[in-house]
């Protein structure tokens, strides 16, 4: 069972790449290894307007920053997010919180 997860209030993800580099610095990953990746979605609405959204995705390399947790710190991506749109916690708590957000996604995650 996934005890922990990261809730993403993705309506406020601006695609700034901060979480990606925060992860690489924390784990000293070389180029090509990423614990989190952000994808852009560009689409049109019925009225012709263009919408741009982003979604961070946790890869198999994400270890939820176990070593930081031991020191009472949040995962590096969560801490540095420029819009504070990411929240780390117990999946049970985050599930309840997700229900209060109009556009959110909960990544449950068990580190490999």
């Amino acid at each position: 069972m996934a005890k922990y997860g990261i809730l993403i209030d993705y309506d406020f993800c601006t695609g700034c790449h901060t979480c990606e580099v925060a992860c690489q610095q924390e784990h000293n990953y070389p180029v090509g290894l990423n614990g989190i990746k952000v994808t852009e979605y560009e689409y049109q609405l019925a009225n012709g307007k263009v919408k741009i959204d982003y979604m961070p995705f946790l890869t198999d390399l994400c270890d939820l920053c176990m070593s930081r947790q031991a020191e009472g710190e949040r995962p590096s991506c969560v801490k540095h997010c420029q819009t504070a749109c990411m929240k780390f916690g117990l999946t049970t708590d985050l599930t309840a919180e997700a229900a209060t957000r109009p556009r959110a996604a909960l990544h449950t995650h068990v580190p490999k």
């Binding site: 700034c16 901060t18 580099v21 690489q24 610095q25 801490k79 540095h80 504070a84």
Partner: peptide, 12 residues
């Protein structure tokens, strides 16, 4: 307030 950016985080 604790936030950072990719350019700072790549400083090393």
């Amino acid at each position: 307030q604790g936030r950072s950016c990719p350019r700072v985080l790549a400083l090393t």
